[in-house]
Simulated assay, not measured.
Amino acid sequence: MMTSLFSLFDPSSSILSLPLNWISTLLGLMFLPYLFWASPSRVLFLWFKTFLILQKEFKTILGPTNLGVSFIFVSLFSLILFNNFLGLLPYIFTSSSHLTMTMTLALPLWASLILYGWINHTQHMFEHLVPQGTPGMLMPFMVLIETTSNIIRPSTLTIRLAANMIAGHLLLSLLSSMGPQLPSGIIPILMFSQILLLMLESAVAVIQSYVFAILMTLYASEVN
């Protein structure tokens, strides 16, 4: 029995104290072996097309000296997208709704970009703290604002992804829990609303994956 609605996000299934819920994060790897022996399908062609479009967009943001960094962000998009969609299936743990996973994705990437920028492009990073045309009196305040903005970036990435995943799943759970108490005539309306909400959550799964990857790409472009 659930003690609260948020308990459905708890990684509670375990065998020998192993948190088996987190294995759902690796379920996306089940789709990879098909690439090596199956003939190309329409779904595979669509995925390759999406992959090329994303890589082209990321390369445009990063510039000509990206040195293959765009592949990292395309892979990041793929990982989040797989986990967001797998979380919409019944009885599958939504790992992307936990701050543990989203912070693990955001913080190391952000920290590595910041360290690389300050070590190799120190003057360029200082220039970012004071936008061009800032009056002299406002420069200390702009440095403080820009520094705070840079520090909270991993937190905003983390909370944005987790909160969007939690909100949709909570709404689906709330509507589904109302089913036994509703009259039989309202059940079709409830089912129709659930289907519409599931379609919305599918769109949110794609959008949040793209937003996470594109923001991280923009952060990487600032250190070049």
Rank of each mutant, 00 (worst) to 15 (best):
M103D: 01
T100I: 13
M137Y: 11
I72P: 00
F45H: 11
L46K: 15
V143L: 13
H124V: 09
H124C: 00
L105F: 15
I119L: 11
G133E: 06
I61R: 08
G185Y: 08
I80L: 15
S184C: 03
H169V: 00
S39T: 14
G168C: 02
P11N: 11
L171R: 14
G117R: 10
L170Y: 05
N66L: 01
M216P: 01
Q132F: 11
S173A: 15
T50I: 05
T134D: 05
T156L: 14
T122F: 14
W118H: 07
M125E: 14
N120F: 15
T122R: 15
M103R: 05
L105Q: 04
A203D: 00
P131I: 08
F212M: 11
W118R: 10
F36E: 03
F126H: 11
R153Y: 12
P135C: 03
L26H: 02
F73W: 07
M216T: 10
T60R: 14
R42G: 13
T122P: 00
F212W: 04
Q132T: 15
M178H: 03
P154M: 04
I166C: 02
H121V: 05
Q194C: 04
Q194N: 09
I80T: 10
A38M: 09
F36A: 15
M178W: 08
L54S: 08
I207D: 02
I114W: 14
L157A: 04
L86D: 04
P180G: 08
L157S: 04
L44E: 10
K59Q: 15
M30R: 08
L215Y: 10
L138W: 06
H121G: 00
Q208C: 02
M125I: 13
G136Y: 09
M103G: 13
A213Y: 06
T102S: 09
L218N: 09
Y91F: 14
V223Q: 12
I61E: 10
S7I: 00
L5M: 09
N120C: 04
S12Y: 07
T104Q: 07
S112D: 03
S202G: 13
L89I: 08
W118S: 07
T104S: 15
I114Q: 13
F141Q: 07
Y219T: 04
A38S: 10
T25G: 15
G68S: 04
